[in-house]
């Protein structure tokens, strides 16, 4: 706030005049928003109009229809999407909920242990997990898929049976949970380690054990941090393509909507209604989450990046 005051009272501080800044910011905002607007308008056009008339012309010559949405959502005419995207939409929800809840709970527990249970090697483990954050997913895809389909062997001895969860929902929840842990543990550790020490000590003096401290003190106080990271993880899983392509077959039974959408791109011409309405259905959920929970979203972002 005081920052703002100085800026107003002291024109010498300004790198850009506020007029230039206003113009540049708003022009950029318009440029940034136009592509999405174009998709939105296109998705409300009738199939035959999409290729004949640019969307910005249609804005002034409106004859919009919901037919694309109806056929894309519930299925109908076209072969590539006979049952619509609804099954894939359901799959996305079915994949995303556990793939958000599992890693967040496991990461919160681990973060608590690393922050508040003293033991030798605690620092080393923390640094190691921190380092794992940017190791590319690609490093684990092949062996993990082999583990799910064939189990693990040393020589001819089976040390781990085939899980038989490849192509099953569990086979997607598990990799998402594993891959989410390093970042989630790191962010939650920052958050949980900053809780007041006195509070923990007082609870222990009163005879509470770690489980009680975790449930009664840490969890309630960590809710804002957990919410922020959960939103992140939710968006990450919903928007993921690589894990879905690797661990879910492209079928209606398990494939999420984002990977179905990617597979629709190959089709030209008549595919355009499907593509525009399908894309909008896919991005609607993240956009709703984003706009309604933006405050938490930004907080989660800042927790990870600004000291």
């Amino acid at each position: 706030m005081s920052n703002l005051k100085i800026a107003n009272h002291n024109p010498g501080r300004k790198l850009f005049s506020s007029k230039i800044a206003t113009v540049v910011v708003w022009v950029t905002t318009v440029i940034w928003t136009i592509p999405t607007l174009g998709l939105l308008v296109t998705s409300f056009k009738a199939d035959k109009d999409i290729l004949n008339e640019p969307w910005w012309v249609s804005l002034f010559n409106p004859h919009f229809t919901l037919s694309s949405y109806k056929s894309v959502f519930f299925g109908g005419d076209t072969e590539s999407l006979s049952n619509g995207v609804l099954p894939y939409f359901v799959n996305s929800i079915v994949i995303t909920l556990p793939a958000t809840i599992f890693p967040i709970v496991i990461a919160t527990m681990a973060a608590y242990a690393l922050a508040w249970i003293r033991f030798r090697g605690s620092d080393f483990i923390f640094f190691f997990i921190f380092a794992l954050q940017i190791v590319p997913l690609q490093m684990s895809l092949i062996p993990l898929l082999l583990l799910f389909t064939g189990g693990a062997h040393i020589g001819s001895v089976t040390v781990f049976p085939a899980l038989g969860i490849a192509g099953d929902f569990a086979g997607i929840w598990l990799p998402h949970t594993m891959f989410a842990l390093p970042l989630a543990i790191y962010l939650l550790h920052n958050f949980i380690a900053s809780l007041p020490r006195d509070l923990m000590e007082a609870a222990h003096v009163d005879g509470a054990n770690h489980f009680k401290v975790f449930r009664m003190i840490v969890l309630p106080l960590a809710v804002p941090g957990i919410a922020a990271i959960a939103i992140f993880q939710f968006l990450w899983v919903w928007n993921d393509l690589l894990v879905a392509l690797t661990f879910a077959s492209g079928t209606e039974e398990v494939a999420p909507i984002n990977s179905k959408l990617a597979s629709l791109v190959g089709q030209y011409g008549s595919g355009y209604t499907q593509l525009s309405a399908g894309a909008f259905i896919t991005i609607a959920v993240p956009l709703i989450v984003f706009f309604s929970l933006q405050r938490y979203f930004v907080r989660g972002l800042l927790a990870g990046s600004v000291k």
């Binding site: 990617a262 593509l275 525009s276 993240p286 989450v289 984003f290």
Partner: peptide
């Protein structure tokens, strides 16, 4: 928030937006 919004969109969704 409008400049920030595309972050919530998947790369696949963004690609389709730009395909048009």
């Amino acid at each position: 928030s409008l400049l920030f919004m595309p972050m919530a969109i998947s790369f696949v969704g963004a690609s389709i937006i730009f395909k048009f």
